[in-house]
Design a protein around this nucleic acid. Structure first.
Lengths: 218, 218
DNA sequence: AAGTTAATGTTGCAATTGCAACAAATTAAA
DNA sequence: TTTAATTTGTTGCAATTGCAACATTAACTT
């Protein structure tokens, strides 16, 4: 997996961060860092920790936009955070490097190999972010809660190459991620259990159907 | 708006395309070009024309993933097209430049200004693609057809800075884009008309409510 | 360990939606 | 211009969902 500093050694990294006028900040757990991001057009690189980007609309519906951990990148442009309906919250103690986006694009170090590598890494990271969004869209375009759940399970299961899934979040957040009502989702999970499609023990879910056979459809 | 060859003159462009071993292909209208894309890890640049990327699942539900016109970019990684549930179809006569993704990343021309500009352009295009996907996700996370429609109208209206919207696609495709049943959407549009929120004349929709007042909520 | 808070599970019910089947209107083709 | 094909509009009905309200369980706090 590509990280933003892949194939850039520590000395070069320090140089790069200096030229890009980066700022490093540390945040406690459960802290809103929205104000840091919204003021400027910045990119944030998570060096350590875990954050969530969520949106709460007028009705109080909360939707998780992104979940980000170590080495992941977010930013004003990348995540469209301008509106103040968005909240960026640390879920652990988190260290973030902030870089002004314009500095990245208009850096004078363009002929330095490490700068070019940095850009290529950024490109790779952003492309993988698109893939994540595509997956999310695939899930959200499913018309029933059941199919959203199964689509989600399949994607996670395929990635891990295993029938065993460990939910990266609790059921409240899963419902927000799938954009469905939590209690309705809970009901559907119950049915899926009763019908023998899945098994749930805490955050561990076992898929009892064959992903590729498409039999689970009905 | 940034295009892939922004700030690259024609001579440089030709050089670049040569070094990147690009292939140009022309397609008739209503032609599937999926096979061209799936074989390799390529990026396609639409020089002229219009294409749609759509997915049809086991149930026959068709969902439009992307709509692309001149100067836009798509690709195996960018659009996660590997699965054969995807169809890439030209909607007009279309000319596309294909470039192998690895060639872009491992080009020997890295110290040439035009190459660096190309990469920066690619980065900008991909970032704007993320923003589009975020918008799509915002729409899809709405829980009712009404709210999906209004969210969609608001986004389009905000972009154009106008209360008048011209649908870029027909109602069948709009329903696919919103991932809702067409007839149910049609019904909801009727209600919105009856309640005085919108006016529809063909593909022209007039928003009769104040986008920012949030009164349309109820 | 007891008390408090948060997460999960459950259920009835009304609202929303998808589906199916068809009518009307529009567009394309012959 | 007539015919055919596609798109749009309409409606009843069953299935699915959101919502609300509450019970149970798990996770923190002190």
């Amino acid at each position: 997996m590509t990280t933003i500093f892949s194939q850039i050694n520590d000395k070069e990294k320090q140089k790069l961060l200096k030229y890009l006028e980066s700022n490093t900040a540390k945040f406690n757990s459960n802290t809103s860092i929205s104000s840091f991001v919204k003021s400027n057009n910045v990119i944030g690189i998570i060096m350590d920790g875990y954050i969530q980007i969520a949106k709460t609309d007028y009705k109080g519906n909360r939707v998780i936009i992104e979940e980000l951990e170590e080495n992941e990148v977010f930013g004003t442009m990348i995540s469209s955070l301008k509106s103040n309906e968005y909240e960026i919250i640390t879920k652990e103690e988190t260290e973030i490097i902030f870089i002004d986006y314009d500095r990245i694009i208009h850096c004078e170090q363009t002929n330095k190999e490490y700068y070019q590598q940095f850009i290529r890494n950024l490109l790779a990271i952003i492309i993988s972010k698109i893939q994540e969004k595509n997956e999310r869209i695939e899930i959200l375009t499913q018309k029933t809660i059941r199919n959203k759940l199964l689509e989600y399970f399949n994607i996670v299961s395929k990635k891990k190459g295993s029938k065993y899934i460990y939910l990266p979040f609790n059921f409240i957040d899963l419902a927000d991620y799938l954009a469905v009502d939590r209690s309705a989702m809970s009901r559907e999970l119950k049915y899926l259990k009763e019908e023998g499609f899945i098994e749930i023990k805490g955050k561990k879910i076992t898929l009892l159907y064959d992903r590729d056979s498409s039999i689970y459809i009905y």
